[in-house]
Amino acid sequence: MGRICCLLLAFLLLGGCASVGAQCENPARLRFSLVPQGDAGRDLSAYRPLVAAIEARLGKPVELLQPQSYGSVVEGLAASTIDFAVLGPASYLKARGANPEVQVFASYAKRAGPFQEQGPYYRALLVVPAASRHRSLESLQGGTLALTDPGSTSGAVLPRRVFPALTGRSLDGFFGRIVYVGDHDRAGLAVAAGKVDAAFLSGFHLSELVRQGRIEADSVRVLWRSEPIPQDAIVYRGRLCAPIREGIRAVFLARDGQAFPGLLEQQGSLAFVPMEDGAYRILRELQ
């Protein structure tokens, strides 16, 4: 009931003051979100120092939006209800496709891990429990596959696209059952625990699980890995006025992108690095 009241309140508040901006938008408050990777709430909390720095620099409040799915962030960017966000590569492409003003300006340089090379790239992996009998793709036929979110690059989008080339069959036709676990952490945990036969997920997140001590590196076996994929895209809307965009960008990339060690540590990253749309060409070509 409370939720419904909130909705009605939103109608009253926003209904009157909403206006179609001129060339650049300078909203009274900025809205930030990011695609769910693991614990979305925890992720958002980690960004609080950075968000605070942006608020300080721009003199505007920044609202943190808790996402339900990759799609909700994409939808927010497409509908311009989100001003800046952290997106997966495919989500970025999807959002930019729907709303060309979405611009990537930065990404993470990830530290190396058991399934991750150092830098702003990562790979999609197909992993099975180390104890399982599966040693090749073929033997997995008819099994249960865990995907993360339908909008996740390494956890759904890329596998669906490359799988026919690998096996000659679509993902849905090949596996007996496909379940969505929502994020990479759960996918990795589910595989390591043997709850599913296999999972597609990001090598970076798998490494993070190992680093955090939540799984053992040898509890899973990698059956397939993709070409390197650019890391998450940190985007803002191009319609935002330049000082705002510049302010956001400056805060992310301050001190060589290492201004928020706590956040970087939590994100398994070494630094924020500048990023351009061209880097995602490789994914775009797959579409």
């Binding site: 939103a10 339900q68 927010g76 509908a79 989100i82």
Partner: peptide
């Protein structure tokens, strides 16, 4: 649109007129 942005359950919405054309879309994707 603003109400939808705060609605975690619904992703997008569109209002179609009698001819089936989009009268309103919550986002380009809609």
């Amino acid at each position: 649109r603003a109400a939808l942005a705060g609605d975690g359950a619904y992703l997008r919405l569109a209002v179609l007129n009698g001819a089936g054309r989009v009268q309103f879309a919550s986002s380009p994707l809609a």
